[in-house]
Amino acid sequence: MATKKKQTPNLQNDSWVVIAADSVIDTQKNDSDPAFVRLRNPSTDAASLYMLSSGDVQLFEVKAFEEDFHSWFVGQTVQRDGRLLFLTPMDPLYLILPYLMTSGKEGKFQPVDQVVMDEEFPACSRLLSLTRSLAFLHHIAEEKEVGKLKFHRYNQEKTMNWLKKKVERTVAMLKARSISVGEGVKSITYIRVKSDSDYHEEDYLRYAHGLISQYLSEDLSKALLDHLQLPELTSPKETEPPSKKRKLSDKPVEAGEDYTKFNSADFVRKPSKKMTAAQKSLAKVDKTGMKTMSSFFSPKAKAENK
């Protein structure tokens, strides 16, 4: 067999395969074109790519599906770049939030157009033109009207309530789509032992919280966790247990429950699956412990030690 060639960089890419919300190409009312812009990512504080629709009506998030060793055939052409871009509608409040929070520290009501400004990302002021910006600011800020002028001040309580609704809606969607929140990647070499109904509400809540946190600063993410009455786990990585590990550690957790029962004073071992509140919290403590133990012997731990 001939020798394999090294990969050369793809410098000439000028084409992108995209799956876009229909509204991206809907320009009936406006004559300006939609545009990709760079804005400050609220979670990383670094630049990320977004899209503003025609007439700055709607905001879209850009996510790239990217796996190594992929290319496209499009019609009668090859496109070496095998990424698939998703353009999905995005709530602009996530991007406005950090600016409001910063100015909110001063405790004053301010005109929002003086708050949502960023020398590094000039396009951010365009966020305020979006249909879902000004009209929805009351979710995250107090409003005051003086004459024709509107003033706003960041409000944590409102924000938390708003985010909680987001989490709840996300939980509902995760359930509706039967998205596996407890085990991560399903692997053909593993047979799923748990059915979706076996996942605890907390698994869903944590998963949804993690998703929403992709749009929040770390502080806000922690505050939301609090608001959801979810105890913080010891390591930030524990919020996202590695898929296959989790499954391994689930069994001992079950056993842990039973032992607890067995050791209890009445000595009656009920086969019932129901747990008392105390046992529940005990099982939870156990669970975290077990996970840390098992992760010790997992490839994950090895990878980290490298």
Binding site: K63, F65, F86, T88, D91, K165, M173, R177, L211
Partner: peptide, 24 residues
């Protein structure tokens, strides 16, 4: 099969709707 990453990636738009849709 349904575990192929590209198939799973198609979950994103619906989930994005839950995360980003307007809150009542």
């Amino acid at each position: 099969n349904s575990d192929d990453t590209i198939v799973m990636a198609m979950d994103w738009p619906e989930l994005a709707e839950a995360i980003h849709g307007p809150v009542e």
